[in-house]
């Protein structure tokens, strides 16, 4: 294990996976006044992109032979359900960060609290995150945690090839190809779908998750400054939420025979020529 300051080395890995509970449906309602999401009454799931981070963590633990994986989630009390789902997939434990003072946090204030919680966990080798959450769509919390903890971060990782001498070998999917990276741990790694196919929870995992104790941390349990928390601590403000206007009118061609099909294809080519695309 490697302490955050780089000292102490052992073999078993300690991995943290920050996860987010997100609304499952696309019918999300917004609070027009605060510009934040109304989560009540909407089915909630583990952010689908976090499942790849959970799977990558499980595979790391298997490759090392031993280790501990801790899921962290900041959210309302019912986010404990997301942590139980992560435990059912095979994670060792979960910690819920829940406090009304955390509410309304943007990515700055969210990564602040998650980083404070990770610091409190002590020795951590690897922090594995999903690429982004499917509701906020920012992808800013993973790099934000790294910045708060002064750790390196490798984003968009599509493959973890191995680990030796404190160095994780990764493939990072960027524009035009894959970068091959040697990442010195401890580090934050955010993963994309090609890193691994998430497994389903097992029956034993589900039983274990039901019996698991999910401790809750409030702001008082963390070494944090009150002024950095929640909406008050967030530099950004949502000023307006609106639905995008769909102004497109589709010209629909319905060919009934071969000659009409040829005409339809001519029309598409003409359309492209008109747009100066051919």
């Amino acid at each position: 294990m490697i302490h955050l300051d780089g000292s102490v080395i052992m073999t078993a890995m300690r991995i943290v996976v920050p996860i987010k509970q997100v609304p499952e449906t696309n019918a999300v309602r917004m609070d027009e006044e605060t510009g934040t999401m109304i989560r009540e009454g909407v089915e909630a799931v583990v952010n689908p992109l976090d499942l790849y981070a959970i799977e990558a963590a499980l595979q790391r633990r298997e490759a090392c032979g031993e280790g501990k994986i801790i899921a962290l989630s900041m959210g309302p009390p019912k986010a404990a359900i997301a942590l139980r789902e992560a435990i059912a997939m095979g994670l060792d434990s979960g910690v819920l960060l829940s406090d009304t003072r955390f509410a309304g946090a943007d990515t700055w204030a969210t990564s602040y609290v998650l980083a404070a919680a990770i610091r409190k966990l002590g020795e951590v080798d690897l922090i594995l995150c999903g690429e982004r959450a499917t509701d906020g769509d920012t992808g800013q919390v993973g790099p934000g945690i790294a910045a708060w903890l002064d750790l390196p971060v490798a984003t968009y990782v599509g493959g973890i090839a191995g680990f030796a001498d404190g160095v994780l070998t990764c493939r990072r999917l960027v524009e035009g190809g894959h970068e091959l990276l040697d990442v010195q741990l401890p580090a934050v790694v955010t993963v994309v779908k090609e890193v691994a196919a998430p497994r389903l929870p097992t029956l034993r995992g589900k039983q274990r998750s039901r019996q698991s104790d999910i401790p809750t941390c409030s702001a008082d349990d963390l070494d944090v400054e009150e002024s950095n928390l929640g909406l008050a601590g967030s530099p950004t403000r949502v000023v307006k939420i609106f639905r995008p206007s769909v102004a497109r009118q589709c010209e629909t061609l319905r060919p009934r025979d071969e000659s009409e099909l040829a005409e339809a294809c001519d029309r598409i080519v003409e359309f492209l020529q008109h747009k100066e695309l051919v």
Partner: peptide, 15 residues
Amino acid sequence: RPAIGGNILATIKTP
């Protein structure tokens, strides 16, 4: 910016 898979647009400022 688009959020929630492009289903909504949000306008944000940093005062």
